[in-house]
Amino acid sequence: MLTKRIIPCLDIDGGRVVKGVSFVNIRDAGDPAELAAFYDSEGADELVFLDITASSDGRDIMIDIVRQVSERVFIPLTVGGGIRSVEDVRRMLEAGADKVSLNTAAVHNPQLVKETSDFFGSQCIVVAIDYKATEKIEGGTAPPLIGDLPLGPASKWEVYTHGGRKPTGVDAVRWAERASELGAGELLVTSMNTDGQQSGYDLEYTREVSEQVTVPVIASGGVGNLTHLDDAIKIGKADAVLAASIFHYGTYRISEAKDYLGKRGVPVRPVQVQ
C-alpha cells in the first residue's frame, strides 16, 4: 500500500540549517548534509531544503549543499526558495535535487509552472503555497497578482508571497487548483496562521485543497505533537506531512511518529534498523 510520507523540512540560511518560529526568532540547528544523513538514517521519507533568503547568493550556496547531500543521501530531495526560472530549476536538478518547489515566482508568473513541468516533467515541480485566513475586506483590496483568481466574498484564504510576508489578493484554493492544472506534480501548503505555533496544521484548507486537486498534497505549518500528524492525514486528507522543529529539537524521533501513526491505522514505511 502507498504509505503516507513524513518529511522533515530544513530551512537554510548562509549554508546552515535554521528554523524560524512564525518566520522570526531564528535559531541555528546544524549542518545541512549532516542533518540530511541523520534524517535518512532516522527513517525520513523525503527531505525538503528551503533557502529562506531566496537570494541569488542563497541559490549558489544551495547548489553546493544539494551536491554534498546527494553524495550520501539516497532519498528524494526537494529544494525551494528563490527559484525563478527554467534555468534555476535545471541547475538544482543537475546538482542532485529530485524536485524543485516554486512559490513567489509561480504566483507572479503562473506560466513558469507550465514551462518547467512541460520541460522537466510534473513529477519534479512542486508548487508551494503560503496562505492565511482572509481578513475582513473593507473598501476592496489591491488588484490580485493573478487577475482571474481574485478574492471574493466566499474566499476563506489568501495567497501570501515573499516568505509569507506579502498579501497577493489571490484566492488560495483557486490558486491550488490552477497550479495543479498548470502541471504541478505536488502541492506544499503552509498556513501562515499556524506556522511556528505548534497548535496543529490548518486542517480545513488542507482538506479543501486535497479534495479539489488530483495531485498529492503536503500539509505544512503548525505541527506540535503526533496527534497533529494523524489529524493532517485523516481529517486534512494530506498525502504527506512536513515538520521541522518537532524533529530538529528532538521533541520526537521519526520512528516515534511512524509508530504512533502506524498504530492508528495510517500506512507508513517502517523505519529500517541500521
Binding site: M1, L2, T3, K4, R5, D45, S122, Q123, G185, E186, T214, V215, P216, D239, A240, R269
Partner: peptide, 10 residues
C-alpha cells in the same frame, strides 16, 4: 486515486 502515484510503496 491521486496521480502521480508518489511515495513509498511495496
Amino acid at each position: 486515486l491521486k496521480v502521480p502515484h508518489m511515495g513509498w510503496n511495496q
